[in-house]
Amino acid sequence: MLCTVPAMEETSAPRAQWLRGVLDMCLLSLMAEGPVYGYEMTVRLAKAGLDVADGSIYPALARLRKRELVEIERRSGGGGPARTYYRPSEAGLRLLRSWSRDWGEFAMSIDTIVGPPGREKS
């Protein structure tokens, strides 16, 4: 009996999985630039080409908060509801520095195997 493995769809599924793996690092990095609220993070990620639903951002922010990696500040919304602004705690900044180093090393390792798009392998 021959066993076949279905071909993987050629979609953005791998990209979504990669993003799930680095979302916390991306969020901390956005916060390190200055206090930012949840929806603004979604917009900034989208501008960078990373489409993340609000439904992914807020659980990630709650997870970071529970781990005491972020601090929050409530600010009035200028006529609308108050917004919660996030910034990394000292522990969050330390972890971000560590993750950034690790990411750089990891990305270089992957690049040595896969290479940038369009580069011919020798």
Rank of each mutant, 00 (worst) to 15 (best):
S122Q: 13
A60M: 07
Y39N: 09
W99C: 01
T84M: 02
M1H: 15
L23T: 01
T4P: 05
A91N: 06
R65M: 06
V43L: 08
P117W: 07
A13G: 08
G55K: 13
P88S: 00
A32F: 06
A48Q: 11
R94I: 02
T11K: 06
R75N: 06
L50A: 11
F106M: 05
P35H: 05
D111N: 10
V114C: 11
G80V: 06
G34E: 10
A16T: 13
W99P: 00
R65C: 05
A16E: 14
S56A: 15
W18R: 15
Y37Q: 08
V22C: 13
Y85H: 08
T11L: 04
Y39Q: 11
S100L: 04
G38I: 04
V36M: 11
L96Y: 04
E105M: 06
A13E: 14
M8V: 13
L69N: 01
M1R: 15
F106T: 10
Y86S: 03
A16G: 09
A107P: 02
T4W: 12
A48K: 08
R20W: 11
E73L: 12
I57T: 04
R119M: 13
R97I: 01
S122Y: 11
S12I: 10
Y39M: 06
M108H: 06
E10W: 01
E68P: 00
S100C: 01
L2N: 15
L27Y: 02
R75F: 07
L50D: 03
Y39F: 08
L2F: 14
A82T: 14
C3N: 13
C26R: 07
D24N: 07
L30S: 01
G104K: 02
L95T: 04
L93R: 13
E33F: 08
D51H: 13
A32Y: 00
V36W: 01
S56L: 11
E71D: 08
R87E: 04
S76F: 09
L95S: 01
I72M: 09
V43E: 05
L2K: 15
E68A: 10
S98A: 14
E40N: 02
I113Q: 12
K66M: 08
V43I: 09
V52A: 09
E33A: 12
G21A: 13
T84Q: 08
V52N: 03
P6C: 10
R74T: 07
R67P: 00
K121R: 14
P116S: 12
D24R: 08
S89P: 00
G78D: 12
D54H: 08
L19I: 14
S109A: 12
S89R: 00
E10P: 00
V70K: 00
S98D: 11
W103E: 03
S29N: 09
P117L: 07
E90K: 10
S100V: 01
R119C: 05
